[in-house]
Design a protein around this nucleic acid. Sequence first.
RNA 1: GUGAGUGUAGCUCAGUUGGAUAGAGCACUGGGUUGUGGCCCCAGUGGUCGAGGGUUCGAGUCCCUUCACUCACCCCA
Length: 420
Amino acid sequence: MEIKAVRGFNDLLPNEIGKWQFVEETAREVFEGFGFSEIRIPILERTELFSRGIGEATDIVEKEMYTFTDRSGNSLTLRPEATASMARAYLEHQLYTFDPVAKLYCIGPMFRYERPQKGRYRQFYQIDAEVFGVENPMVDAEVIVMLIHFLKRVGLEKLELQINSLGCHACRPRYREELKKFLTQKSFQLCEDCQRRLQTNPLRIFDCKVETCQEAIANAPKVTDFICPECQKHFDKVKEHLETAGLTYILNPRMVRGLDYYTRTAFEVVSYQLGSQNAVTGGGRYDNLFQEIGGLEIPGIGFAIGMERLVSLLPKDKEFVQTPYLFIAALGEGPLKEAYRIVNQLHLQGIRAELDYEGKSLKSQMRRADKFKAQYVLILGDEELKQGKAVLRNMETKFQEEIPIPNLVNILKEKVRRQE
RNA sequence: GUGAGUGUAGCUCAGUUGGAUAGAGCACUGGGUUGUGGCCCCAGUGGUCGAGGGUUCGAGUCCCUUCACUCACCCCA
């Protein structure tokens, strides 16, 4: 094979697509039940939407975007995430004139130029849900409740919900300084990366996996001790609402988010079966995003689910493959022609049917039928054709009966109905 | 961008201290009653040993370069 898919871009083959369809269908059902509407947005946006929305200094913008100049000289970028585009669409079409509150979800591919590894690809799929226009902590909890409900519906177990508050633009800088001051005293035990982070983004040191860094940060001041009274109140309400909804969560004061726009509530659902990239989904509140891209002060909260991470956690025992209902084994030219006519007729009735076009031996056709896990095989030879009949074999019970060809469609439809 | 590991048939892998025509299992195709599947038996198709160069009488085995994949770091879903 000479031409292969480019690095980090994967094919989803028929044998695994059932899981994806199942996940997407469940998401639509659950989200719409919670009052969300689907929105579809372009895969390509003007680069500045992301550089302003996500933040100029973030890793995504600095080194992970697929950016190019088009033929008319505009800088365009393959979307690395969906939230900014959804916010842009909300502003552009002034959805707030219909109602200030918008509950939206979106399913599709995102692109980030990173070194691929387990659970991380250059094209990856996300399910996004966002609520624009509400600052009330009730919505924070509502969104999380919906997320957990969805994950359970899809069959995930052993998940851990972690939450934190990152404070707002008023109180976070204060905490940042405090943390910086604390860590500067211990900078001698920080690794090289963290020395750098101390200057650029001290919060990130919490994420470091180096042991000495973890020791250094063990007794560091917590965000939650520094957030302003309003943020504190907001966070308390979120926790309260989660508890009334019966959700258990883990407070993780060390959880930080990589995108600049996050404020206040931040959350993540992790699974320890995933390997190093253990977050199935992450999200939070972003009360500054809209100002960055449009000037209006509109609060928002939402999350993104990593589809390939989620699919990899799906219970294995679930069967998602579609098998043909009927396989027609035709013997000879005349029967093949008749079989072809029948198959077409069945397809029009929505009955999955296959046949062998190559005129192979009955044995070989039976083997194929078996491989495809067909429930019935119709055997059609010259004799049967002459009499206008065919042999219908139930592959599981091995029961065979002769049936008149004109009745076949009705007989099969009846069998399908009885099965359901 | 950095580090480590792995590249032999469609898949999973054997291949001794370098030695002659490169193997197995699974899969695929055909056959074992002329028109009946799964199990079993037999046969067959299929490999420029990732690529390029070097050492050697001789390289799948050793050396160098390169590419790809995987995992991890950075960071994130």
